[in-house]
Every structure is written in structure tokens, then in C-alpha cells.
Design a protein around this nucleic acid. Structure first.
Length: 922
DNA sequence: GCAAGGTC
């Protein structure tokens, strides 16, 4: 190993990710008497102390100083001129320069690092051994090497705060891994650009256009978008739609009981149930005609019920939610406090197996004195009891932290709340359970035959409760059935044909939601509860008294809007793709710059397209919310569209705007610094920026504007429709300005024309701040009450009528059915006939019609989900049919050779990924 | 005022 001290004793600055690790590692390394003892100094930050001791690395004497950061030292932000929401068009955020800097609240830590680094020759990085930790390591390197360019930089790799592991790590130092850090840089930049652009876009577009009535102050509502929070909302909405669109279906089953001297046995039909009444009745009648039951099998088996795996964060959150109805946010808050006070280990961990080097017995020993579970701990430690079992792992390891376990005994502290008591108890009991033997039961299964139909009954006797004795949160019921012998015959006491109905899938519980997120890779153990809380904070979802989530109308409308655009931005595919790209960067198969460029290019195309299709968002919002009078009726010009770059300040964009008085103008976003403005004729009634670029004005792209003039306000020889340019080349526009005048000074500063209240402009030219309370908005219910599903006819909005195309008579009611074209994700462009009559379900694809086959809409349900010819057929509205396309997913292979199961995150098509999406160029 | 990720 290379030295760096130049003769004298080497001084090394050691940095951990959190104060607790700096302390723990220092204590381990300073146990040897040659360390000269552990000395503690204050750092500039009161949380991050500095520990000094001596240590020998590879026989070199090192003077160690050990301090810490608190997570990330730096933040990524846009440069200042892009920070204000109105400073630029949100689409610019895909290229706007970003900077990484140490925020104010971390400056004291930065100073400590700089001061210590100047005195040291080595820097040893003890950050957590995951990707985020590696990224933080490079943040520390950046700060330290700015203070001392000659530092020799080392990385210690460890996965648990266990003596042997820590000593091994410090004797086998390696170099930090730039690729791991690069992967995190990629994520940070993509998250920032996508999050900020979409959040600004949808907030500014919708907040002023609708009466949201979800917050006391509509004006300050933020309609955020994030690559984690939106898919989380997506899970809630999707389940809600499944729940709402469920159509109960009646089914039938045959049940049999038999009373004997030993008791009663209940036999279940091994077919489960049948949906066809006639079939069920026929079988039932066969049984009734010949009801003699013959025992065909008697099986006795020992069954084990295993204790849970060691506790990870997600499991802690899920179990606290199930057992105590605690929210994941509260669980993490309480767990953090228990950790800070030293009672439990670090609560943010994915790991669910203990390292072989963990001293599992000592942890049990500490619990022997507890009044409630102490005796169980004693039994565990008694070899004669045979209760001990080395815990089985769940196969997850974040290489940074052990599973959550008790670290200090407590019989309950005076200042603990009920939640502290509960959570500590859960952690202890869970730990004791997972080092215990499984529960053992003896199960008896008896099968009988009645008229050729099979029935079965089972009973269970608990032989040994084992871990269940301490893990009071789980139960395992016992039930006794009479003794039966093979070949025995008897006549059932009852034989009934019973009916039931299918139930809708329940709304998602917090535990369900965490499972969905975990499975899809949304968020990390440390952030999942934040994403759930964000849904509640943003008024996107609510949690009912049963701890189950439903979307609010706002959450549903946003998801519906993007879904109607054909975008799956509310699905987890984008995050999955990012995760796969991050992996590729971290192992070097893709370069950071390449991934950034590709992903941002795709997302920008997606953003631009979403903005073009913003009418879909408006339509979806209009289903649930009343239009506000804060902007013009259509809302189309609430924030305006970019016309060109400003020729005056050369920095900001010129946007088309409609003032509250109805007049149009094109103004610079840089107002008030830049006051460039082009006033348009006062006779304009409508104006929309098009995608056509003026071929005459060559100073830069100038998008042409489609104008509509009021007939009575322009001379007869001018057209009411005009595709014009504001770049200076358009003589017609200039003439009309001369003839009709502009809106300038007509109404500025006075109440809007015909409006009885004081208006507050939301254009940059008049005011940069929004006035609150100036608007007198009425608070009445929406014209489309949220309880009312979009009607039967809504589904035809998905299709366009082909005029002049042939029609066929409906086979159900005879009404003529026009040929239509599907516009759904799954079947875009495919032709079909469907009956327009209210309540009629006739539907047939054109290709199927030629062969005479029909598919009735009403019968689309079980087992048809993977059949593309029947997908997308249900009406949606408030309750959308299950969009189960799992049968169609294809497997891709990533650059690293790993299979990626997925599909295009833009349109959801399973046949390609986003970079090949045909909708990109639309 | 925007994301998600660390951690206090």
C-alpha cells in the first residue's frame, strides 16, 4: 500500500455517512491499548463529532481522526436564473445548466472536513457500501481535495459494524468506485429535470383553470409530478378502478357436512365453485340422487409454520401497519427515535439475513430480564429446550446495514409513547421469533367421493407452538375433525347447493401499497413512506378509517389525463428503465453521458407531446372539477405557449398570452427585467400557437399563430382565419393592428371588461405574484359529480366515426352499427363495429365480423384479460376495467445481458421500448 | 414553490 506521509506519522481523515457509524467504528478500532485511547472533539457541526485514536494499517502507524457527514453533503439544483417558476419555459429545464453545491445547512460539516483535510495525508471513506454511499463518498472527496490536493484517497468496504469486519475493511482498503457514483448522478439529474418540468407544467396549467376545492388555499396548491410519487399514485388509482368497475358475478358451490359422535366435519367441493348455474345444478342433482360418501383418501402430515425472516424496513412498516394500524411515516419516525436513543439498530435497511459473524446469542441474553418475554429468551438460550434455530435469510442484502434488531434492553422507558412501546416490542419479539424453531402442526386431510364428485375436509392439531409463543402477532388455528378410515362409507348430514357472488378486489392497504412499490422498485427503504405521505399531502389520495387508500378526484383526474394521452407516466416502467440504466452505468456497460442524453431526450419528447395534448388533461380535470374564472374559459392560454426566443434580452422565451380583459399579446418571460412585448390586434377572438415555423423570419424559430378575428371588427376584405407571424414579416397582422388598434392600455389596471370583480392578472407583464383572495369563486358542485360514472356513450369517445363507411345491423337489437376505429393503446387503428344503442353491448372487430365471430362487451371478464381482441372493450369512466396485459409482456435483454421484463414507458406497448416508440415523433 | 436520495 502506498504511503503518503513523507516520513512522519501519517494522519488519516476518516469519514462516515452518519455520526453513529463514526462513533461505532472508532470504538471498534480503538479497543487495542496501542490506540492511545479514544478521544472525542467537537466539530463545527454539533451533530458530527470527531474521534481521535492511533491505529496500525499494514504495520504503518496512522493517527486517525474520524468524523462524519449526515447523508448527502451536496445538492443538485438549476442555476439561479432557472430557479423561479416563471423564469423560463418548463421545457428549457431539460437543458438548463445544473450545479452541485453544498447547501447552507451543511456548510459547518464542510468546514470541519476542510480543516481536518488540511492536516491529513490520507482520506479514508467509510460511507455506506451502496450506490448512494459511493456518491456521497465523491462529494466528500470533492470538498476535501479542494482543501488539500495531495490527499491519498481510500475506501473502506464493510457491511456491518462487527469488530472482525471493520478490522478487515481497514486492512484491505480499496479505491472508491466512480461508476457507482456516476449512476447516482444520472438518477439525480433525471429526477430533477423531469420532476421540475412536469410539476411546473401541470401546476401552472391546471391550478388556475379549475376550482380544486381540495385545499384551503387553491392558489398555493402544487400539482407535483415525480418518477416515484406518480407510479405510487398509479397503484392506488388502478386498484380503485378495478374495485369500482367490478361486476359481481354469481357462482355456485356444493357443500357437505357430516356429524358423528366425534363431532362435525365440513367437506369442501374440490371444484371450488362454478359460474354456470345449470352445470352446478346438474352435478348437485347427481349427488343428491346418490349421496353415499366414500372415503377415498386419509392423509396425515406434519406441517411447519416458519417464523418470519429477520426484519427489514419494509417488513417493519408493513407489520406495524397490520398489527398496530400505524402509518409507515409514523413507524419510521418512532423507529428513528428508538435508533437515536440506542434501543434498536439502524432502521433503514433492505437486509433480511444476519451476517454469519453476528453474535446472535448476546442479543437474546440482554432480553432475559424482561417481565413479559424474558422467560422466553431464557428458554431460547437453554440448549435442552431445543428452541434455538439459526435464522433463515430472505435473500436481500443492501451490503450496508444488518436487519433491524434490538441493541439495548428496555422494559419500557417513562417518556415512551404507546407507539414507542409497540414498535420496540415488535422489534424484540420479531428478533426472538426469527431465532426460534417453527411451529409444528399435524394436519389430517380426508377426501370423499359422492357420485363421482370429490370433496375434502381437513383438521389441524398444534403439536409445538415454538416461535408463536413469543410472536403474539401471528396465529395458527387448530381444528379437530372426526376420525375417518379409507374406504369408509357414510351418508352426509347436509348436502347443499349454495350461491355466492364475486367480490371486488379491496382498495390498497398501506402494506399492499408498500408491496407494490417494493416489487416495482419504486423508492428505497428510506423513502417509500415519504412517497406515500406525499400522495396525502398533495391531495392526490386519502386513507380511510380502515387504512385503505383511494385516489381523490384530483389524483384520479391527473392519472386519467395522462392515460388518455396514451402515456404510462403513472406506471412504474419509467422508474424500472431508469433503474436498469443506473445498473448499466454502475457496472460500466453504459456511459453516464450517454444514458443522460438518451433518457432526457426521450423525456423531453414526451413532455413536448404532453403539452401539445394538454387538452386531454383538461378534459379529465373537467370531469371532476368546475372551471375557475381565474383564467379564460378554455384555459388554453393560462400559461401561454412559446412563440420565439426574446430578441431583446436574448435569454427568455416570448409567450402568447391572453389577458383577463380578453386581449392577446406576446410577452417576454423575463419580465420585469425584460419588458419586450408584441401587442396583437384588438379584434382577435382566438389565438393558438401552432407547430409551423415561419420561413421568412430567420433570426430563430418563430412559431406561427393561428388567429381568429371577430368578423364585425375587421374590414370585409380580411379573412376571419389567419395563420400569422409576429416576427415582423406579416403585413396583414400589421395592417390589422393599425386598423383595429391593440389591447394595450385599453384595460390595463382596471377591472376586466364585463367582470364585476377586481381582476388580478396572471400575466408576467402586470404582476409576477399572484393575488390571493381577489377572486370571487363560487363553490358549487361539479357538473359531472364524481359519483357519476362517465356514461355508456363515453366509450365512443375513444373511437372516431368513419363517415360513409358501411354499417352492419346489431345482432342484439338491429340498430345500424357504423364502422369505427379504435384509439386505445392496445388496438389503435383497428376497425370495429359497436352498437350505439343505450344499454346494448354488441361489439365486434371488423376482422372478426368477416368470420362471423362476435364478442359481447358484457361478457368480458375472467380469463379474457390476455386476449387482445377483448381488451380495452369496457367502458371506463369512473370505473375502468382491469388493464391486465401481463399475458402480452415480452422480455428484453439489457446491455448487461440481463433480461428486462417491460414495455415502452411512453405508450405502454410491450413490443418496444421508449426509444423506438412511434408516438415520440408525433 | 418543483424530484428523489441521503440523514438530524
Amino acid at each position: 500500500m502506498a504511503g503518503g506521509g513523507g516520513g512522519g506519522r501519517i494522519r488519516a481523515l476518516n469519514v462516515a455517512e452518519k455520526p453513529s457509524v463514526a462513533k461505532a467504528v472508532s470504538q471498534i478500532l480503538s479497543k487495542n491499548p496501542s490506540s492511545g485511547g479514544l478521544r472525542v472533539r467537537e466539530g463545527r457541526s454539533r451533530y458530527n463529532k470527531i474521534f481521535d485514536f492511533n491505529y496500525a494499517i499494514q504495520n504503518q502507524h496512522i493517527q486517525m481522526s474520524f468524523t462524519s457527514v449526515t447523508g448527502h453533503l451536496m445538492e443538485l439544483e438549476f442555476e439561479d436564473r432557472y430557479r423561479k417558476w416563471h423564469s423560463c419555459d418548463p421545457v428549457d429545464l431539460y437543458q438548463a445548466p445544473v450545479k452541485k453545491f453544498v447547501p447552507q445547512d451543511k456548510s459547518e460539516i464542510q468546514k470541519t472536513l476542510e480543516e481536518e483535510a488540511r492536516m491529513c495525508q490520507w482520506l479514508i471513506l467509510w460511507l455506506d457500501c451502496d450506490r448512494e454511499g459511493e456518491n456521497i463518498a465523491f462529494e466528500v472527496v470533492e470538498v476535501c481535495t479542494r482543501a488539500n490536493r495531495h490527499l491519498n484517497i481510500w475506501r473502506a468496504r464493510f457491511s456491518a459494524l462487527i469488530d472482525r469486519e471493520i478490522h478487515y475493511a481497514v486492512q484491505h482498503l480499496i479505491r472508491p468506485n466512480q461508476l457507482f457514483a456516476d449512476a447516482v448522478d444520472v438518477r439525480q439529474e433525471i429526477d430533477l429535470r423531469i420532476g421540475a418540468s412536469f410539476t411546473r407544467f401541470q401546476t401552472m396549467l391546471l391550478r388556475d383553470a379549475f376550482v380544486l376545492d381540495c385545499a384551503s388555499d387553491d392558489q398555493n396548491v402544487i400539482l407535483s409530478y415525480g418518477p416515484c410519487q406518480f407510479p405510487t399514485l398509479g397503484f392506488v388509482v388502478e386498484r380503485f378502478w378495478e374495485n369500482q368497475s367490478h361486476e359481481p358475478e354469481e357462482f355456485w358451490s356444493i357443500n357437505c357436512t357430516h356429524n358423528s359422535a366425534e363431532g362435525t366435519a365440513t367437506f369442501n367441493w374440490m371444484r371450488g365453485h362454478l359460474f354456470d348455474y345449470t352445470s352446478a345444478t346438474i352435478i348437485y342433482e347427481m349427488c343428491v340422487e346418490d349421496p353415499t360418501a366414500t372415503v377415498t383418501s386419509v392423509r396425515q402430515q406434519e406441517k411447519l409454520k416458519y417464523p418470519p425472516h429477520p426484519l427489514s424496513t419494509i417488513e417493519l412498516e408493513k407489520r406495524a401497519s397490520r398489527y398496530f394500524r400505524m402509518s409507515s411515516e409514523q413507524t419510521m419516525k418512532v423507529a428513528e427515535e428508538l435508533y437515536q436513543a440506542g434501543f434498536i439498530s439502524y432502521p433503514r435497511t433492505e437486509t433480511d439475513s444476519f451476517s454469519e459473524r453476528t453474535d446472535l446469542h448476546t442479543i437474546v441474553q440482554e432480553q432475559q430480564e424482561h417481565p413479559t418475554w424474558g422467560s422466553y429468551a431464557q428458554r431460547l438460550l437453554d440448549p435442552e429446550a431445543g428452541l434455538w434455530r439459526n435464522p433463515s435469510g430472505g435473500g436481500h442484502d443492501d451490503k450496508a446495514h444488518p436487519p433491524i434488531h434490538p441493541t439495548k434492553f428496555s422494559a419500557g422507558e417513562a417518556r415512551w409513547s404507546q407507539d414507542h412501546h409497540r414498535l420496540y416490542e415488535l422489534v424484540v419479539r420479531h428478533y426472538l421469533a426469527c431465532v426460534s424453531q417453527p411451529a409444528i402442526g399435524a394436519e389430517t386431510t380426508v377426501e370423499i367421493d359422492i357420485a363421482g364428485e370429490q370433496f375434502s375436509a381437513s383438521g389441524r392439531v398444534i403439536i409445538a407452538r415454538n416461535y408463536l409463543d413469543v410472536y403474539r402477532f401471528e396465529t395458527w388455528g387448530g381444528s379437530v375433525i372426526p376420525t375417518y378410515n379409507y374406504g369408509q362409507q357414510f351418508t352426509p348430514t347436509t348436502l347443499t347447493l349454495d350461491s355466492g357472488v364475486t367480490r371486488p378486489p379491496p382498495l390498497l392497504s398501506e402494506a399492499d401499497l408498500l408491496s407494490c412499490m417494493d416489487k416495482a422498485g419504486i423508492g428505497t427503504d428510506a423513502t417509500m413512506h415519504d412517497h406515500i405521505k406525499k400522495l396525502l399531502d398533495r391531495f392526490y389520495a386519502t386513507k380511510d378509517s380502515n387504512m385503505r387508500f383511494s385516489p381523490t378526484t384530483l389524483g384520479e383526474a391527473l392519472v386519467m389525463g395522462y392515460d388518455d394521452m396514451g402515456y404510462e407516466l403513472w406506471k412504474p416502467y419509467l422508474r424500472a428503465m431508469m433503474e436498469s440504466d443506473m445498473k448499466a452505468v454502475s457496472i460500466g456497460t453504459k456511459r453516464k453521458a450517454e444514458v443522460l442524453e438518451t433518457c432526457l431526450q426521450q423525456m423531453k419528447a414526451c413532455f413536448v407531446d404532453a403539452r401539445v395534448n394538454k387538452a386531454k388533461l383538461f378534459e379529465a380535470m373537467a370531469v371532476f372539477f368546475e372551471r375557475s374564472n381565474r383564467s379564460d374559459a378554455s384555459g388554453q392560454h393560462a400559461i401561454g405557449d412559446v412563440v420565439c426566443k426574446c430578441g431583446l434580452c436574448q435569454e427568455s422565451d416570448m409567450m402568447l398570452r391572453k389577458k383577463p380583459d380578453g386581449n392577446f399579446m406576446v410577452g417576454c418571460l423575463g419580465y420585469p427585467q425584460c419588458r419586450n412585448v408584441v401587442w396583437l390586434p384588438g379584434s382577435v377572438s382566438e389565438a393558438t400557437v401552432t407547430t409551423n415555423i415561419c420561413s421568412t423570419c430567420t433570426s430563430g424559430p418563430v412559431y406561427m399563430i393561428q388567429f381568429k378575428f371577430r368578423r364585425l371588427e375587421i374590414p370585409p376584405n380580411y379573412n376571419v382565419d389567419h395563420l400569422g407571424c409576429i416576427g415582423g414579416c406579416d403585413d396583414i397582422l400589421k395592417q390589422l393592428v393599425e386598423i383595429c388598434g391593440t389591447g394595450f392600455r385599453n384595460n390595463s389596471g382596471v377591472p376586466g371588461r364585463g367582470q364585476g370583480h377586481t381582476s388580478s392578472s396572471n400575466t408576467a407583464q402586470q404582476s409576477n405574484s399572484r393575488s390571493t383572495g381577489a377572486w370571487q369563486t363560487t363553490h358549487s358542485s361539479s357538473s359531472y359529480p364524481s359519483e357519476t360514472p362517465r356514461g355508456h356513450n363515453a366509450r365512443y369517445q375513444e373511437a372516431s366515426v368513419q363517415n360513409g363507411e358501411p354499417s352492419i345491423p346489431c345482432t342484439s337489437c338491429g340498430a345500424p352499427c357504423n364502422l369505427r376505429t379504435a384509439n386505445t393503446q392496445a388496438n389503435r387503428g383497428r376497425k370495429f363495429y359497436s352498437c350505439p344503442a343505450q344499454g346494448c353491448n354488441f361489439f365486434v372487430w371488423e376482422d372478426a365480423a368477416n368470420g362471423g365471430a362476435t364478442v359481447a362487451r358484457g361478457s368480458i371478464n375472467r380469463s379474457s384479460a390476455s386476449n387482445p381482441s377483448t381488451r380495452g372493450g369496457r367502458g371506463r369512466g369512473r370505473g375502468r376495467g382491469r388493464s391486465n396485459t401481463s399475458g402480452n409482456d415480452v422480455t428484453f435483454v439489457s446491455a448487461t445481458g440481463e433480461p428486462i421484463s417491460g414495455r415502452c414507458f411512453i405508450c405502454g406497448d410491450p413490443s418496444h421500448f421508449a426509444n423506438a416508440c412511434p408516438s415520440r415523433g408525433r
